[in-house]
């Protein structure tokens, strides 16, 4: 055995240095020009609206009326941003989008945290602590995600009314938590089932119970999927409009609803610069999340979401 091993090693060493990695490619090959050309065109196509928005939001109204939506501002002004944030009027309130922003924060943060905690425990239990009927339970849960939201709106209104939380932040948080359940549970279930089952068995032999295995074994190994869930939920709940407008009232409207009210107000002059600034402000949070966690997101998606 030993002989064979040393033999193999010397034979390998005798061949000397060998090239490693793929064969280098020429930089300006036809394929590359095509590839980068296409990428360039596509990115221009997607970036142009953003460009228009940013430029418009930095112009004063007189400059906007002159047309030329692609031109950069002659005179840069941040007044539209200030107005969108703290002065624009929706209905009776004239404190801008800031009210909606804080409402959205107060809706998103608890909804995201609660839904992820519950869904991850769901997924863990469905994989590792199978009980009689657990598959049926899971099927029903998944089936729930195929029912159009519109059908459920009115029943939920009644439900929330009976719970005395209709028109409150708690009501909306509850709705977001429940509606996040199917997809998040699926996500976590698939991820946990990709972890080796023997780890779970070993932990049980080591005397760890349901929660200890979850917290000390499963969660530390599942960072990528938690990041995926976090991104899905933050962007989903932040961008939600329908539930926000149906289950809350004007004082606690989330940012998206308020944005709509600002942009679509029919009174007075259309302030395009303020509208653009308000839209950008509303989109900033999901954008920020994507930029910060893009790499982890891809890793998490690759690790769990597409499997099973």
């Amino acid at each position: 055995m030993v002989d064979v091993a040393t033999h193999g090693a010397t034979a390998h060493g005798a061949t000397g240095v060998q090239p490693r990695g793929a064969k280098p490619k020429r930089r300006f090959s036809g394929g590359n020009i095509m590839l980068y050309g296409t990428l360039f065109v596509v990115s221009v196509y997607y970036l142009l609206p953003l460009w228009v928005m940013v430029m418009t939001s930095l112009k004063g109204m007189p400059e906007i009326r002159m047309g030329n939506i692609f031109a950069p501002p002659v005179e840069i002004t941040f007044q539209p941003w200030v107005k969108a944030w703290s002065e624009a009027c929706t209905g009776l309130n004239c404190d801008g989008l800031s009210r909606g922003f804080w409402n959205s924060v107060m809706i998103t943060v608890p909804s995201v945290i609660i839904s992820i905690i519950v869904a991850s425990v769901n997924g863990y239990a469905l994989v590792n602590w199978r009980f009689k009927g657990s598959e049926v339970f899971f099927t029903i849960l998944i089936f729930g995600s195929f029912i159009p939201y519109q059908i459920m709106l009115y029943p939920i209104v009644i439900l929330l009314r009976e719970l005395h939380i209709y028109g409150t932040l708690y009501g909306l948080i509850l709705v977001h938590t429940i509606f996040g359940m199917p997809i998040l549970t699926l996500l976590f279930r698939n991820y946990f089932s990709s972890l080796p089952e023997e780890l779970f068995k070993a932990a049980r032999v080591d005397g760890a119970g349901f929660w200890r295995i979850y917290l000390q074994i499963m969660v530390p190994m599942s960072l990528p999927i938690f990041v995926v869930a976090l991104i899905l939920q933050i962007t989903g709940i932040w961008n939600d409009f329908l539930f926000g407008v149906v289950f809350t009232k004007p004082e606690i409207y989330p940012m998206t609803v308020q944005l709509n009210n600002i942009v679509n107000s029919v009174q007075g002059v259309k302030e395009y610069n303020v509208n653009m600034a308000a839209t950008l402000l509303t989109g900033l949070v999901p954008l920020f999340i994507y930029f910060v966690s893009g790499k982890l997101f891809v890793r998490g998606i690759a690790a769990g979401a597409v499997k099973g």
Binding site: E198, K201, A202, V205, I217
Partner: peptide, 10 residues
């Protein structure tokens, strides 16, 4: 005490 095929180390 149990020893597993895949080692199952945390």
């Amino acid at each position: 005490g149990m020893v597993f095929q895949s080692y199952a180390l945390y």
